[in-house]
């Protein structure tokens, strides 16, 4: 709706209400992953016992998402399809290795496919979703319990803010050593970005001050933000560096 009001999305004569499709709602365990319906709202994410238990990083992101009124209607599917580089749930979903479940009914026959979220985003507002497809759900693998997860959003307000940058980190932590490290960044590239070099700097290492600094420097080098009126590229790089250090300090 805000996009259409601003004239960025032209209305087509057909408006399709998805609200009454039960398969798009609810959070459920499906084997070793969580299936989060595309129409699950931010409020529902925060209230879901399954999400709280297995992906608290999504709860953190939902808590910082806009306002209570918006959290009551904004859906995870909507946030994913909007494909904003600063979309609050995208960074945690990347760090969680989520998959996007797409469905279509081209010839009366329901077909579906799953796309790793890292491949789903093609640019600001652009995704792999075909015109006839809808996003039905997000699937998040349930990892080992007790992983370190943290979402960090830099904005001047607790919520109701478009982040200048955001960071998501997920990792196993055994005796101070990180493994299966996933680091993702928001608002630093045309799409939400996985920080491969940053991950490599952390994988299998003890979180010493030197390792944290190396990882933060790698992060600063691998993001490629732009200047816009919300922040300059220089500031975004600096913040990726400084804030990642802050997040990692919490993991020690």
């Amino acid at each position: 709706m805000p996009q259409s009001k601003a004239g960025r999305v032209a209305f087509e004569p057909l408006l399709l209400g998805l609200r009454r499709i039960p398969e798009l709602h609810g959070v459920a365990r499906d084997g070793d992953s969580l299936r989060i319906g595309a129409l699950v709202t931010m409020t529902e994410l925060m209230e879901s016992a399954l999400v709280r238990a297995h992906c608290p990083i999504l709860v953190e992101a939902a808590d910082q998402f806009a306002s209570d009124q918006v959290r009551n209607v904004a859906t995870i599917g909507g946030n994913v399809c909007n494909a904003s580089p600063a979309g609050d749930t995208l960074v945690p979903l990347l760090a969680l290795d989520a998959e996007v479940e797409l469905v279509a009914k081209p010839n009366g026959l329901l077909t579906g496919r799953r796309v790793p979220i890292g491949e789903f985003f093609k640019g600001p507002g652009k995704t792999l979703r075909a015109r006839h497809e809808i996003v039905a759900a997000l699937r998040v693998p349930i990892g080992v319990p007790g992983r370190f997860m943290r979402f960090f959003k830099l904005g001047s307000r607790p919520a109701l803010d478009i982040s200048a940058i955001s960071i998501g980190v997920c990792a196993r932590r055994d005796a101070g050593v990180l493994s299966e490290v996933r680091v993702a960044f928001g608002a630093v590239a045309p799409v939400p970005l996985r920080g491969r070099a940053t991950e490599a700097a952390l994988e299998g290492r003890q979180l010493t001050e030197a390792v944290i600094e190396t990882a933060a420097a790698a992060a600063r080098d691998e993001v490629h933000p732009i200047d816009d009126f919300r922040a300059s590229a220089w500031y975004r790089r600096e913040m990726v560096h400084n804030m990642l250090k802050k997040v990692l300090a919490d993991a020690t």
């Binding site: 001047s156 307000r157 478009i162 009126f229």
Partner: peptide
């Protein structure tokens, strides 16, 4: 900038909110 207002809305023109 160049005579144009770049943030004509409450999303980017930041009034103080209650928690601040």
């Amino acid at each position: 900038k160049d005579g144009r207002i770049r943030n004509p809305g409450f999303r980017d023109y930041k009034l103080v909110t209650a928690p601040e």
